[in-house]
Simulated assay, not measured.
Amino acid sequence: MTQHCGFVAIVGRPNVGKSTLMNRILGQKISITSRRPQTTRHQVMGIKTEGETQFIYVDTPGMHIQTRDRNKAINRFMNQAATHALRDIDCVIFIVDRTKWTAEDDVVLEKLGQVPAPVILAVNKVDWLEDKSSLLPWLDSISRKREFAAVVPISAKHGTNVPELEAEIAQRLPESVHYFPEDQITDKSQRFLAAELVREKVMRQLGDELPYQMTVEIEEFKDDGKTLHISALIMVERPGQKKILIGERGERIKSIGREARLEMERAFDAKVMLNLWVKVKRGWSDDDRALKSLGYDLD
C-alpha cells in the first residue's frame, strides 16, 4: 500500500489552544499547557502513525506583537521559532478562538501569506459559545480573509470535530515513506519533557504572580534501574521572584515538586525522585547567549 507522511505546523496567536489540540490528537501530553499566554516556548514535535499515514505535528509558540514589555530576547526567539516551523511544511493548522479576531491573528495571517502549503482554519473553543447561531456568519466572514483549504470548528479540549480535522489533514499529506518508527510519539527527550513539566506546574500555580522571566534546566537525569533521579534548577531574574517561588516555609516549591513528580511518573512510567532548586540569574531572558546555553536554540 502507498504510504503518506508529512509535517503539519500548528500555528496561532498565544493561548488559542495549540498545545491542547496536539495533546488531544496524540492521546497523551507532549506539550505543556496553562491558562497563561506563551506557555509554549519551543517547537515541539508530536508524531502519530495510523496505518499507512504518518502525521508529524509541530506545536509552535504563539505568534505575538512585540510591544515594549514583550520585546526581550526570549520573545524574539518565540516568534522566530513559530516562523521557522513554517519552512518546508506540508500542511498548516491555523487556530483561532471562537468569534474573536485580534491584531495578533492578523500577524499570523500575514505570515501565512508567504507559505505555499494548504492552510486549514480550526476555530477552537466552539463549545464555549452561548449563542451557537453567531458561529455560521462569523465563519463566513473569516473565510473571506484568505483561501483556506478547509474551515473546521472544533473543541480541542473535548475533542469535538477533531477526527474531522485529522481527516482534512490526511487528504493533504504527500506520498512518502514514514520518517519515524510507528511507536515513536515525539522527537523530544525525557530530559526536555521533565523540564517542561516543572515549568508547567510553576506557571499553573504562579502564573499571575510570577512573570515570564522563569525557566527550568535539568542538572541531573539518572536512571538506576528502579528510580529516575531528577534534579531541576528553576531560574528567575530577581530575588523577590525566588521568594515567591519558594513560598512560606518552602510550601510553594514543595507543592510544585509534588505535582511535577506525579506527572513525571505517569509520563515516564517509573518511580521518580525529584529535587528542585531555585537560582537568581539576572537578565537571562534578554541575553541571546544565555538563552542559547539554556536550550533556546532554533538549530
Score class of each variant (00 low, 15 high):
V280L: 12
G27W: 04
R172F: 04
L121H: 06
Y212L: 13
D269V: 05
L228M: 09
S34Y: 13
S155Q: 12
A9F: 08
W138Y: 15
L262V: 04
V16G: 01
P239C: 08
D183V: 03
D224R: 00
G27A: 03
L26E: 10
K132M: 14
V44S: 00
I244S: 04
Q114F: 13
E200A: 07
F221N: 05
I32D: 01
G257R: 12
E237R: 02
Q28K: 15
G12I: 05
E209R: 02
G51D: 08
T40M: 02
V272F: 00
I32Y: 06
K222P: 08
I246K: 11
Y212D: 11
D88H: 14
Q66R: 14
F268R: 07
V96E: 14
D183A: 07
G159Y: 03
R146D: 08
K48V: 13
K18Y: 02
E237L: 06
Q54H: 09
F55S: 03
I25S: 05
M45V: 15
V58E: 02
H42G: 00
R144C: 03
Q241S: 07
V198Q: 01
S19R: 02
Y57V: 12
S231G: 12
S255V: 09
R98H: 04
L298E: 13
G207F: 14
P61N: 11
L233A: 11
M22E: 07
V11M: 02
P116Q: 11
D223Q: 07
Q66L: 14
M22K: 05
W138D: 14
H158F: 14
P181Q: 03
Y179Q: 06
S293T: 07
L233S: 09
L245E: 01
L233C: 08
H178L: 15
P211R: 01
V202Q: 07
P14H: 11
P61Q: 13
E50D: 03
D288P: 14
V115A: 07
N79G: 09
R35N: 15
E168T: 10
T215V: 12
R199D: 15
Q54W: 12
D269M: 05
K281A: 10
V198L: 03
V151W: 02
N161E: 13
E110W: 01
I246G: 07
W138Q: 12
R76D: 01
D297T: 15
E220C: 00
I32Q: 06
R191P: 12
I56N: 04
F180D: 02
R36A: 06
N161W: 06
G225V: 13
F77R: 03
R204L: 08
E168N: 10
L262P: 04
K111N: 15
R252I: 13
V177R: 12
L294R: 09
A9G: 03
F148R: 02
L121T: 06
A85Y: 08
D287T: 06
R249W: 03
K188W: 08
S133G: 08
N71A: 11
G240K: 15
F7K: 08
I230W: 06
C91E: 00
G6V: 02
D287E: 10
R282N: 14
D297H: 09
M203L: 15
L173C: 10
L26Y: 06
I120E: 00
Q241V: 09
I74R: 00
D90T: 04
N275R: 13
H229G: 07
R266V: 01
E237Y: 02
I93V: 15
K222R: 10
K111Q: 15
K222L: 12
Q38M: 08
E265H: 00
M45E: 11
I154Q: 05
P153G: 09
D208F: 09
G257T: 14
V280M: 08
D187H: 10
